[in-house]
Computed example of a mutant assay.
Amino acid sequence: MKKKILFITTGGTIASSDSGDGLKPTVHAATMLEELGYTESYDFVISEPFQIDSSNMRPSDWNVLMESIRSHSEGCDGVVVLHGTDTMAYTASALSYMLLDFPLPVVITGSQKPIHAEGTDAIRNITCAIEAAATAPAPLVMIAFANHVMLGCHTSKVSADRLAAFHTLYGKDIGYFRKGQMHWYKKRIDKLLSARRSMPCCAITGKTFLLKLVPGISSDICDFFHGGSYQALVIEGFGSGGIPNRKTEFLNKLQKLVDEGMIVVCKTQCFYGKTDMSIYEVGRLAMDAGVISMSNITTEALVTKLMWLLSLDLSTEEIKEALATNYAGELVVI
C-alpha cells in the first residue's frame, strides 16, 4: 500500500514566477507534483491555505497553517510544507511548539530558485522532504534543504543566495538524503525525544520584539515599549551577551521595563557559540537589572517560543521557568 502524504503549499520562491515586478508565487501544488512524477509512488492530499512571499508571513498565518495540518492529515503518514526560505526557520520553530502533540512528522522545505528556473534546487529539496516525511522515525518538525534534514527549532537561514542556505545551530543534522535513500541519525533523534515535554496546544497570539544591539544604540528605543502591545523583548547582545552600560541609560530603562512586567531576554547575536552573561561585567549588570540570559537556542526558536508561551495562560514567573525548560528540542544540543 502506498504511503499518503499531506502536501501543503504556502508560496515562496519555490512556487514563484516573474510577475513583471519581480518574483511572485503563482505555481500550484498539483503542478509541482506533476513536475516531480511522484504521484505513482505516493498518494497525496493537497492543501493550499495561502500563497504568499514568506517575507509577508505573520503569526496569524502560522495559526492557519497549523489548522490546515491538523484538519487535512487524517489517514496520512507524514506532512510536507512548501514555504519561502526567508522566514522558514521562524515557521519551523513556531510549528515545533504548536504541534507538540501532533503524531506525524512535518517536513518544511523550499528553494533558492523557482521550480521552473534553470538550475533550480526545488526538485531536489521537495524529493528530500517527501522521503523524509514518509520515513521519519519520530513525529518531529523538520527542515529539509540541500539533502540535509534538520530539526526545525535548531535551524537558521545563513545564506541569501547559496543553495545550502540553512545550517543546524547548537547541534547537528538529524538525517540526510543520498542516492535515493533517507538516512537517519537515530541516537540524536532518541536524545531529542527523551527530552521533550508536553504543553497544551494553542494558537499564537503573543507579541515579541527582536532588538539587535549596535554600538552607540540610544536608550530612547526602550521608550517605545512603555504602554505598548509588546509583551516580551529579545535582545541580541554583543559577544557572549554583553549589553552596554557606559554613558547610557539603557540598563536603567531595561530594568524599568522588567519592573512593569515585560519579559526581557538576551542571547548572543553570533551564529555560533553560547550565551553566558555571567562572564563579563556588562552581562552581569544586565542580569542584575532583570534581563534573562538564554543560551543554546536560535533567535528564531527563542522569539517564537516567547510568542507561544505568552499565548498560554501562564504567569510571568511560569513563563520564565518555561524559558529554561526544553519542549521541542530547542534547548537540546545533539
Score class of each variant (00 low, 15 high):
K2H: 06
F7D: 04
G12M: 11
I14V: 11
S16L: 07
S17F: 04
S19F: 13
G20Q: 13
D21I: 06
L23Y: 05
K24S: 15
V27P: 01
V27W: 03
M32H: 10
L33Y: 08
E34D: 15
T39K: 15
T39V: 14
T39S: 15
E40H: 11
E40G: 11
S41I: 07
S41L: 12
D43G: 09
I46S: 06
S47T: 10
I52L: 10
D53P: 00
S54G: 11
N56M: 09
M57F: 14
D61K: 10
L65I: 07
I69A: 02
H72D: 13
S73C: 07
E74W: 09
C76P: 06
V79H: 03
V80L: 08
L82P: 00
T85L: 03
T87A: 06
T87Y: 04
Y90R: 08
A92Q: 03
A94T: 01
L95H: 03
F102D: 01
T109P: 01
S111R: 05
I123H: 10
E131W: 03
A138L: 06
A138Q: 09
P139W: 00
A146D: 15
N147L: 05
M150Y: 00
S156Y: 03
S159C: 10
L163K: 09
H167I: 04
T168D: 01
L169Y: 03
G171R: 03
D173C: 00
D173K: 02
R178N: 11
K179H: 12
G180N: 05
G180D: 06
M182Q: 06
L192F: 03
L192K: 01
R196E: 01
K207W: 05
K207L: 14
F209I: 08
F209K: 12
I217G: 12
S218Q: 04
I221V: 15
F224A: 15
H226E: 15
G227H: 12
G228Y: 04
G228C: 11
S229T: 14
Q231Y: 00
Q231N: 04
F238Q: 05
S240W: 08
R246Y: 14
R246L: 14
T248C: 13
L251Y: 08
K253V: 08
Q255C: 10
L257D: 05
D259V: 09
E260L: 02
M262F: 08
M262R: 09
C266A: 10
T268K: 02
C270T: 00
C270G: 00
C270V: 00
T275V: 04
D276K: 00
D276V: 02
G283A: 07
L285F: 13
M287P: 06
D288F: 03
A289L: 09
G290F: 09
G290C: 10
V291Y: 09
T298N: 02
T304L: 11
L306S: 04
L306D: 03
L312S: 04
E317R: 13
K320H: 02
V333L: 03
